[in-house]
Design a binder for these strands. Structure first.
Lengths: 342, 342
DNA sequence: CTGAAAGCGCTAACAA
DNA sequence: TTGTTAGCGCTTTCAG
């Protein structure tokens, strides 16, 4: 493979000029420019990325950290980020943490060592001190799906509390009173916020908040199944279950079906996320929609703004996305159903 | 960040020795070894990957090319590959081609330029000449989910023809006679093979193969929807539809439901892949299962064998994985149902 | 077992 | 506008 020196030699210029053609084309005269470009093409020259990265001390990769690539939410975010990154000539380093903070920290170290050009952290479990470390490293980053209020950083997220509020309120509105909630990992801010929204809606409606209607899950389908089983055993079986995400809602639906009950006649179920499966299962799942693909796009654009103008971006943006209630059939109340599919 | 020179200085040795500690520990005396290791730890030293890559002319990234990250099949493969890569200290460069050959080729070039340590190509659309180019570049690679018989390369794939045969035969066995097939992209080898299996089963059963029962799809859900719509309009409506993958099967099911028909009473539907949604929809989808996560693991292991012993691996492996028929409810014949989700 | 030194290919400051 | 040259940090011969 030809290198820059060979191009320079054959084009009859210095390596600096060749480098300039690539990096500062405005500072090269049209004629030499043409000369060099032709030689490059003739020799099928491609700059060595390692050498370039070494000299610049940064790479053209975006580190993308996701908690669980098997949750259909994240491939959508990934696609959003990737679509922008490709345009910019960057590529994606995929890091799947399996909701494990240690793993996530390990990946973070790796990405910092590899001097990723930028970072997108989705539903990150990192602590403030980790974030501080990223900032110190100078690598631009954006957080998606997590609002760390106390931290000054670029973020794109939805209003989870609002979402939890909206969907609980909807359940109340259509007549449910005994409403249970299966939370995500209770240590996660998002889970807490969804729950706060849930409680707020209950409180406003004058419905007592019952501890035993609050079941702990972990965002995986199985925990929804288990959580629902637990709820179904209760003497005062809930009228409806609000699961902290769609995966758990689907698990809950399975549990309900397995118990010989039907949805929504015997018990309503709603979720959060609006993953694509939500419209494919029966009954279709009422849920809160977040435009995840778009959030990926937005995050990536924001990231590149920071990569490209490192200096002037000392002000962080917190981009708030309004969640949207998708009323389908799993919550009951047939006449309010809006069909989504096709 | 400390560099190798600083470590060498503080440890009172040469940079070469420090490098040796990292790369050829067997050639360093225990005492200096200890000395150097301690200094490294004290200075919190991490080798600069760019410099290393530049010197070695290869990186510690695995390029992973997938046709469509939104198809739940591929995140599973990705996870398989990633799980192995992480163990080996490699990371994943994710490339999503959207089934576009040009895009795939673009990514391939990028990965070759970036001197990826290895490549995993899933359901690749590349041509023989592209494969030849990879081989020439010396970058080890493994293909997943595509069998290029004529090409000598490492491959992990399932027997698509067998799968198509098995599932069609099952449909025949339980009484269906008019069986239609919605193909994947007809230019893809896998689609062709599935179709050949379908035709073979029909032929063996003495059922005529009808051109108009062969509808062209493209592996996306919508094409399944459209394909089924087309089939439902026919005078002699098919008894069952074999869709080339689960996504299309789900699309077909939607179309059937939209037409007011029921599955499997009016018409049976079967798919291919056994993505996780298959057990979540109603009726549960009869399909052909491939252990995709495991295939990812196998492919990655094979890849690292090649990365680690570049010389001695001049023999390519073609790893054939037997597909498995998962009989559920969408094909009809209740009494043969085996439940999967518990 | 260890050290000196020559690259790996590129960028950018400095000079012209 | 262009060229010279000093790094960037590491690996690996080649000597010792």
């Amino acid at each position: 493979m030809a290198n820059i020196r060979e191009v320079a030699r054959q084009a009859g210029v210095s390596v600096a000029t060749v480098s300039r053609v690539l990096n500062h084309p405005e500072s090269v005269s049209p004629s030499t420019m043409k000369q060099v470009l032709e030689t490059m093409k003739r020799l099928d020259y491609t700059p060595n990325v390692f050498a370039r990265s070494l000299a610049l001390n940064r790479s053209s990769s975006i580190g993308l950290i996701v908690p669980n690539i098997l949750n259909p939410l994240y491939p959508q975010v990934a696609k959003g980020v990737e679509d922008i990154a490709r345009q910019k000539g960057y590529n994606i380093l995929l890091c799947n943490t399996e909701e494990d903070q240690e793993k996530e920290r390990g990946y973070l170290n790796m990405l910092l060592e590899k001097r990723a050009g930028g970072l997108v952290l989705t539903s990150s479990r990192l602590e403030e001190s980790d974030i501080e470390r990223i900032r110190k490293s100078g690598v631009p980053f954006v957080m998606v799906g997590r609002n760390m209020e106390e931290v000054d950083a670029n973020m794109v997220f939805t209003d989870y509390q609002m979402g939890g509020y909206q969907i609980t309120q909807h359940l109340i509105e259509i007549g449910h009173r005994r409403i249970a909630h299966i939370t995500g990992n209770p240590h996660h801010r998002e889970s807490l916020e969804k729950r706060l929204g849930y409680e707020k809606a209950l409180r406003e409606a004058g419905i007592p908040i019952l501890d035993h209607y609050l079941v702990e899950g972990n965002n995986e389908m199985e925990s929804g199944y288990l959580g629902a089983k637990k709820l179904l055993k209760m003497e005062e079986r809930p009228h409806a279950i609000f699961a902290g995400n769609d995966l758990m809602a689907i698990g809950a639906m399975e549990a309900i079906k397995d118990s010989g009950l039907s949805i929504p006649e015997d018990i309503g179920v709603v979720g959060f996320d609006d993953i694509n499966i939500a419209t494919l299962i029966q009954p279709r799942l009422t849920t809160i929609s977040q435009p995840v693909y778009k959030m990926g796009l937005i995050a990536a654009r924001l990231l590149f703004e920071n990569i490209e103008n490192k200096e002037e971006n000392d002000f962080c943006q917190k981009i708030f996305i309004q969640p949207k209630l998708m009323v389908r059939k799993s919550c009951g109340h047939e006449d309010r159903v809006r069909e989504i599919f096709n």
